[in-house]
Nucleic acid binder design. Structure first.
Lengths: 213, 213, 213, 213
DNA sequence: TATGAATGAGGTTTCATTCAT
DNA sequence: CATGAATGAAACCTCATTCAT
């Protein structure tokens, strides 16, 4: 019995060890340079060992992506809990997403990698796993909006829809950041980003939109 | 004289032939599978021939991307010209972008490829060429907003900023479409997309936002 | 324990196997035709395998060259040790170099490859390794001259300088051998070679040269 | 008749034009970078045109090599004619060869290329053509020695043999120059080179060597 | 005769994956 | 279960040479 337990524990440990190595390599050398061999070396394990824990290189990336989304979820969850005012909450969350894209740049790259991969392929349940985590993140946004609605600050009949729009907007902006110099010469990106959030909030705080839809 | 002319024409034709092949391969197998060899085969040309028309694989993608952005620009430009009402114009443009992402999916993928590629690298000159075309697209949006402002329908002191936000929002939404089933189960994507546009317009048509900034 | 040992042995064997294949290919097809692919085929190994033993194609050549120079050093060292008379010793060493150029023709070619390669490039570390071996060979010559000096047979204040001149002369002659038929029609190359050695010795055995310098 | 003449002249002109371009490319980019295309561009001619004047790329190199040897021959011939004293003459010639290896480095590289090429292959009369020019150079050395003999300054029964030895020595030294730093650290190459020439001259100026042979 | 577009074999190198130990 | 040597396909790119015009 104790043996089985130990086995299980060791397995978890190895798993974590590999993930840590993958993360390290990813952040140090970037996605394209993150080869299995390099990760194995960083993990101080044989490549074969990696393959007994992960079915393929892609699997490792998927795991990393989940990790990234989990981390993101945790961060904005904490913010959501710590902030009273719905408006401030939303602003802080948006800000956190931007920060995440900066400090966790590589997690962000992986997310994009998957979002950019061909078609809706993704085979099997892998996609679902990823989506699940994305859903988690989204839910925090939804809750944030919902609670604002409850408090009579936000007006919307489709909180989830708005949540998706917000996230998409922020995500899109961060992606476009690469073209910042050309698209918005002389402008501060943060100002632009905040403007987008403000616009969004203004929409939520304004009544009687239903007749428009 | 005739010979030179023919040479030139043939050169143009080969160029188009290669671009078509690249497009085809890209569409069929996706970005990561689009190797020079495969493109050459699709074009029924030798590998070397491709290299006498394009300096590198990346160059082909850049050309495709320019092509895509040009096509997009042309399409929405036409819409912009053909539509009187600023609101309708914006809606139609947004709609066109969605259509573009559907029918010109490969072009969209390439855009993402460049937006997702590491860092702000791009070797400068190339980046500028791409950005130039992106700028072109953006300018149409700016003009659309500006003209609405002129007509007293839109209120904004930063048309360009708003244009970027709109484009980013639409782009982000289309990217997130892949997670549609999970993020918005049972919802129609078009409705979501339209909602985003409506929100945006509502912002523009509402006065006195300046005190918010 | 035994496993590790075997692994090590196998690794050495593969290394030797690759070197042997490289030598074979080199000898059979010449330097310019010695591609990695061909060497891999000759070694009956995958291309990738070669790259896990050698960092690059050049590395293989460097290894071969070191091998060659080591072999040469060993051979003339043995002669130097086995021969008492300084004059005979020098003659035998010279003779051995000629033999080396004949039996180890490929090694000789590689040496020329490096001596003929562009500039003083060589990426530093590698160059030093090669030079080290060349130095080893030279030192034997120096010692041979030095000991002759000690015995009062040779007169020179710059043994090293003379050693270099001797080696360069022999090397140059062997290179020119290709033009033998034209440059020295009807002459025996060996006679020419010996003459050069004799000239050299005559210089060393003659006193009072210092006033010339 | 006049037409034929013109044709011939034009042909010679084209030939020179190509050679000039090849020389230019060679000296600017070095041997390995001297592709047919580049040469053709430099000559402002089509690649096909080059092939109607030269059978292959190698042929161009052969021509260049002849050119180099011719130039060398001319230079040392002039020196030989302009100098009275046999000793000075030899020294000046040696010096000229060193200078040639420095200023005409690429000619020198080509010479080595051919001297290093596999076996004594060289097929057909190409080899002979090259050898002929080499012979020309050698003859100047032979004459220089011979005339010294006539003047009673040099003593030798085999002027040609000595000439070859001299050339080989100088050539070998120049090749070894690449290993200068290791082989002769802290020594001036010119001193070494001059020493070799002095040694050679000392041999020639000393009588009664015949009993040694 | 001059052209230069087209070729495609060849070059080196990387890397995900397998499998015998 | 852990290992890492071996694999070999695939990647991008170059370039001497040919040949239809």
């Amino acid at each position: 019995m104790g043996l089985k337990e130990r086995r299980k524990r060791e397995k978890r440990e190895r798993h974590a060890q590999i993930m840590a190595a993958a993360r390290k390599v990813l952040f140090k050398h970037g996605m394209s340079m993150a080869s299995i061999k390099r990760i194995a070396q960083a993990a101080e394990l044989g490549v074969g060992t990696l393959y007994s824990y992960f079915g393929s290189k892609e699997d490792i990336f998927i795991a990393l992506q989940e990790e990234g989304l989990e981390m993101l979820a945790r961060e904005i969850q904490k913010i959501a809990e710590d902030t009273e005012d719905p408006l401030t909450r939303l602003r802080k969350i948006a800000r956190a997403y931007l920060t995440f894209s900066e400090t966790g740049k590589d997690y962000f790259d992986i997310l994009n990698y998957f979002l950019s991969s061909p078609g809706t392929v993704f085979e099997h349940g892998l996609k679902q796993q990823i989506d699940k985590h994305a859903s988690q993140v989204l839910n925090i946004l939804v809750t944030a909006i919902d609670s604002g609605k409850q408090q009579g600050v936000f007006y919307t009949t489709h909180p989830r829809r708005h949540a998706v729009i917000l996230w998409a907007t922020l995500h899109g902006l961060i992606q476009f950041r690469k073209m910042e110099a050309t698209l918005l010469p002389g402008e501060d990106f943060y100002r632009l980003y905040n403007q987008a959030v403000d616009n969004f909030i203004r929409n939520l705080t304004t009544k009687s939109k239903s007749h428009k839809l």
